[in-house]
Design a binder for these strands. Structure first.
Length: 465
RNA sequence: GGCCUGAUGGCGGAGCGGUUACGCACCGGAUUGCAAAUCCGUGAAGCCCGGUUCGACUCCGGGUCAGGCCUCCA
């Protein structure tokens, strides 16, 4: 099975070949922990979690190193800390914990490494020093700036020319910059802000340097795959390349930084861009109180990762129905034993085609149907095992099927429902249909739907209750 | 202005130069005390205009529309 991925730099689908199959490296830009993550932030997390699972499937669980940084030095963090009168780590630890909990609710595995800027300051200073030593950066008024003109292939990832950028520059050029497109590697901290020592004076790192420095320090250059949101292509990833390469050699373009670049598309909300002014920012932290994390995950995977995805109530409802159907099948065949099963080839094939999750979903449906229509126990065991194995690589269907339909039901209600169902079973046994119907109606008023079967009765909460 | 995406049935969403995607919803049938679930089945598509081709939703050109990036941003 050959893994094909779309590489942003080449603008084409290419075969993935790791430098070392025993040590496949993946880096994805993670959160700046000053507040809660929104669903837009969750898309890359879920998408690259599937990639992580797929790579582990192909190369072995211990042969994939996935790093996702936590940015804990940032202006917005400083502001939040200042506003609340606390040290920045009070803010960053708090939101990093919430972030990890929320992403776990979406079924995302913890990355192998979660490097933090504050823990990698020496590596950052080292990388800046190397860039300066190689003649690609200059110090000016306490700042260190990357000299874009010194790096000939700058703009290759985003397909921008330096000339265009100069022509289109809209912002006022800071006096310490030689050229408007030069970007900050190190800058002085303002009064009251956290500060670290450096050869260029006390200060803090610029925005882009953290990722390239942490990649070099934690994974080693070049890495196999670098991922992130589409919006990071420019300037963030462009600048990472410039830094990472120019730290290694005086002519950075002679080596490589990341062999494959993957970027997920954006989310819109009922067709609009998410923005604070429109008031349509949906936080994962809030959403998971209303919708199962697995539904959110499946909805995020319902479209191909590179395309746009419109986040709507309809999308959530359709995704919920789809998962209800599959969990319903699993509940119906709860007694069928499961054996260890490799990822079904059709699913592996779909995901190996640049993470074609919609096609993987189609296979999931086919396997669920195979389970429903299996002629004998052997076929049922095979189909159920395959369905669960397929779900595993997608991070879906691993929960208890019975619990799926009863999520959020408190104990009092459960007791009440179970009692009514017992009464109803007695009535049905006695063929007292009017009593049975009366109880069905009573349950209905509790928002519960009863499903009779040959072996008893099950129930679930009705949609929207 | 520059760069980049996308446009598929009622909705979501893939593949594919000629053959059913798949799901959700709907409709018909089976099944069910009733119902749900399930199964079987029907219907439903490819923004516009050209071109290439025996044949295009699929390739090429142009247009229209929508969205993103160029400043913090997944």
């Amino acid at each position: 099975m050959k893994l094909q991925i779309h590489d942003t730099l080449r603008r084409d689908k290419v075969e993935f070949q790791p430098q070392n199959p025993q040590r496949v490296t993946l880096y994805v830009c993670g959160p700046t922990v000053y507040s809660y993550a929104h669903i837009g932030n969750a898309r890359p997390v879920v998408v690259f979690d599937v990639l992580f699972r797929l790579l582990r499937t192909i190369y072995g669980e211990d042969h994939v190193i996935y790093a996702r940084n936590i940015t804990d030095v940032d202006d917005k963090i400083n502001k939040a800390a200042m506003d609340q009168g606390v040290e920045i780590d009070v803010i960053t630890n708090h939101f990093a914990d919430i972030y990890n909990q929320d992403m776990a609710t979406l079924g995302a595995l913890r990355p192998t490494l979660e490097p933090r800027v504050t823990h990698n300051m020496a590596a950052i200073v080292d990388q800046i020093a190397a860039i300066v030593a190689n003649g690609h950066a200059y110090a000016e008024q306490g700042h260190v700036l990357f000299d874009v003109e010194s790096f000939k292939t700058y703009g290759a990832l985003s397909r921008r020319s330096v000339d265009d950028m100069i022509a289109g520059a809209r912002v006022e050029v800071a006096p310490y910059k030689r050229n408007p497109q030069d970007f900050v590697l190190w800058k002085p901290s303002k009064t009251g802000e956290p500060v670290w020592d450096s050869p260029w004076g006390p200060g803090r790192p610029g925005w882009h340097i953290e990722c390239s420095a942490m990649i070099e320090a934690n994974l080693g250059l070049p890495i196999d795959i670098h991922g992130g949101g589409h919006d990071l292509i420019f300037p963030h990833h462009e600048n990472e390349i410039a830094q990472g390469l120019c730290a290694q050699h005086a002519h950075g373009h002679d080596s490589e930084y990341a062999h494959y670049w993957m970027h997920n598309g954006f989310l819109t909300f009922d067709g609009d861009k998410m923005s604070k002014s429109l008031g349509n920012v949906k936080l994962v932290h809030d959403l998971i109180k209303q919708v199962p994390g697995e539904v959110i995950r499946a909805a995020l995977l319902s479209a191909h990762y590179r395309g746009p995805l419109d986040w709507t109530g309809e999308l959530i409802a359709q995704t919920q129905s789809r998962l209800d159907g599959m969990y319903g099948t699993l509940r119906k065949f709860a007694a069928v034993p499961v054996r260890d099963e490799a990822t079904p080839p059709a699913v592996l094939e779909a995901l190996s085609d640049d993470l074609n999750t919609p096609r993987a979903f189609a296979e999931l449906s086919a396997l669920a149907k195979a389970l429903e229509t299996a002629a004998d126990d052997a076929a049922r065991i095979a189909a159920k095992s395959q369905l669960l194995a397929a779900g595993k690589v997608l991070g879906l269907l691993q929960g208890d099927a019975e619990a799926w339909f009863k999520a959020g039901v408190d104990e009092d209600l459960t007791v009440k429902i179970d009692a009514l169902i017992a009464e109803r079973i007695a009535a049905r046994t006695a063929k007292n249909w009017s009593e049975a119907d009366r109880i069905r109606k009573a349950l209905d008023e509790l928002g519960v739907e009863v499903m009779d079967s040959a072996t008893g009765a099950t129930w679930k909460l009705k949609a929207g209750v």
